[in-house]
């Protein structure tokens, strides 16, 4: 299990967490943002996207990668969730220029 694989797994899970954070209904409501019309399968796919790298790490090593992943995702998840949705996120999202997976679909009707 190389360090690179662990970093990649944490990055992939963090990206999926970012997708979940951006579309999280309560978060949007609290900050006065319009809700994102997401299908249930999209959310479940994102949750799988968070967990899949962990399963991969657990299967392909002696547990070290998985434990690092657990710790790292606890920190990156908190960091993501703690960021207040500010104005710059909204225009980027509307222009479809963001790197977040939901950038395109949030520009819906």
């Amino acid at each position: 299990m190389s360090i690179l694989a662990i970093v990649a797994a944490v990055a992939a899970s963090t990206a999926a967490l970012a997708y979940l954070a951006l579309g999280n209904a309560k978060r949007r409501r609290v900050f006065g943002l319009p809700p994102l019309e997401r299908k249930a399968w999209q959310t479940w796919l994102a949750i799988s996207g968070v967990l899949a790298p962990a399963v991969f790490l657990l299967n392909s090593g002696g547990g070290a990668g998985f434990v690092v992943w657990c710790g790292a995702v606890s920190v990156t998840g908190w960091g993501l969730a703690a960021m207040t949705p500010t104005k710059p996120i909204v225009p980027r999202r509307r222009n479809g220029g963001g790197t977040k997976p939901d950038a395109a679909q949030s520009s819906g009707p």
Partner: peptide
């Protein structure tokens, strides 16, 4: 449900609560 709810803006009691709860939930 509150796992992605950042601290509400301002300097209110609820803001302090949000910060503590959010960090504690992830940790």
């Amino acid at each position: 449900r509150d796992l992605f709810v950042a601290a509400r803006p301002g300097n209110r009691l609820v803001t302090a609560r949000d910060r503590h709860v959010l960090a504690a939930s992830w940790g």
